[in-house]
Design a protein around this nucleic acid. Sequence first.
DNA 1: CGCTTTTGACCTGCGC
DNA 2: GCGCAGGTCAAAAGCG
Length: 296
Amino acid sequence: MASEWNNQSPLSLDLCVGQSPNQASAGTLEAKLSELSEENKRLIKIISTIYMKQAALHNQLKDLTGSPSAEGSFSLMRKRQIESIEMNTYDGSVCERVDEVRNQIESNLIEHSCKRIREDNKHNIYTTYTKTNASDSSMVVRDGYHWRKYGQKVTRDNPSPRAYFRCSFAPSCPVKKKVQRSAEDKSVLVATYEGNHNHGPPSPLDAANNLHQNGSHPCFFSVNSSDSTITLDLTQQEFKSGVGRAACKDKDTETMEFQNLLAEQMASSLTKDSTFTAALASAISGRMLQHLEAQN
DNA sequence: CGCTTTTGACCTGCGC
DNA sequence: GCGCAGGTCAAAAGCG
């Protein structure tokens, strides 16, 4: 998902940064901005559809369980299946794969909803996919936090070892992280986070340094086991503790609010992108010069 | 010296 | 109860 997304994403469009306003024609930039706008509209529509279906699924789960307390709990089997689904759905287009994951989760929900539900699995679980150099054997996913490795294991379904990390940012932080290379694409690191940090997020400087050192940005897609939500974050480079994220949340979230949030996130991401703002400034200044020349 | 990483042993849960 | 697989522990080694 991430690799294709990175190739197609409007956020990664080459905006001719570094060229003079004359070289980067305003027309080309306008065309790309228009294209970007259309792409964003299309994505918002897709995600809104997914969100609506997820809300329906959420209601279906409530009907099946009949108990609000059971809501939000996953059996270990479901957790494993979802992790397996996540591992197997990395490649391919965003909408197709998200739909596929949704369908698989839906079928799993129906299949297992009558089985014993574990109460101890209340941690939030989210997964990030990080594109790295395939030749890079390190299992480091830079997310701004400090992690201490406490174990490594070779699992049955993947020849690549799985590394286990604990958050060492705060002494008693319960958050754990599992990192394993994708079985299908060894250049992709799949990091699964479990639990909530009991401390504040890393400083922006730390996060920025960590995130940009290897030039890769995790593409955030997760299945949250605590509230049965699917989260697709196309812009956020941080995970749970990041300020705001484009998320498919539970039934209380209105579609319009969700779309606004998504739009804000995309706008925020673009404005934070120095290459984009530089290219935009070049385009605007170029246009202003043209306008002034036309007046003279 | 203190922190991190490595790695084999041990623990735990699940399916049969 | 047994075997398997995933997860965790903890001692030793490595590193700055």
